[in-house]
Simulated scan of single mutants.
Amino acid sequence: MDWTSNLQGLFGGILIGISATWLMATLGRVTGISGIAGTLVTARPKGDSAWRAAFLAGLVTGPILLVLAGGDLGNVVNEPNEIIGDPAGGVLSMLIAGLLVGVGTGLGSGCTSGHGVCGLARLSPRSMAATGTFLLSAVVTVYVARHIVGGGA
């Protein structure tokens, strides 16, 4: 068992919890990435975009700073010298997947970070239903990909 990966996951989870709590305590906002990003590019209250831009910039610059400091991004690659590997299904399938995620977050009124982290912590029935749907969809997707499409990997 690789304890380093477990500790990295634990530390990352703690940071996610702290950031969600901090945003709720200081601004009264839920840490839902789709809502933060979507509201940044659409209509929003005046003066509400600075924290959204800073939050999204942190999501992008955090991993970059980690790599520059000599850390790694975990097990996202197949080769030791790569930072991020090629998309498993090709670029077109990744674009389609991203589009479907965007449509899904719109239909579900949020994403896994908003519903799964913040909504469950607030005991929101809507978030409980959404998170259950996310998990069920993931189970079905893995089953279909491995046992029907992929031939039983």
Rank of each mutant, 00 (worst) to 15 (best):
F11R: 15
A153I: 15
M1K: 01
P45Q: 11
R44Y: 03
E82V: 13
G70Y: 04
F11I: 15
W3V: 15
L99H: 06
L15G: 04
V91G: 10
G104W: 02
F134Q: 01
A121K: 03
I148G: 06
G13S: 09
N75G: 13
S127T: 05
L56Q: 00
A37V: 13
G9V: 09
L15K: 12
T133E: 04
G32A: 06
G110K: 03
Q8Y: 12
L7A: 13
V103Y: 14
L10I: 09
P45Y: 09
T26Q: 02
G102L: 13
V117R: 06
L15R: 07
G85V: 07
L120Y: 12
A69V: 04
V144K: 12
I16F: 05
G108W: 07
L120S: 01
G114Y: 01
S34C: 09
G74P: 01
S5V: 15
I84Q: 08
T133P: 05
W51P: 00
G17M: 13
D86F: 09
V142I: 13
M24N: 10
E79D: 12
F55P: 00
Q8K: 15
G35F: 11
V149M: 10
V30N: 13
I14P: 13
Q8G: 02
G62D: 05
E82F: 04
I33A: 05
G9T: 14
M94Y: 04
V41S: 02
M128Y: 11
G114T: 10
G38D: 04
G17W: 10
G102P: 14
V77T: 12
A37R: 06
S109T: 07
L23F: 09
G116I: 09
L68T: 07
I64H: 11
G9S: 12
Y143W: 06
G38E: 07
S113E: 02
V103G: 02
S109N: 14
T42C: 11
G110P: 08
G116T: 11
D48T: 09
L68S: 03
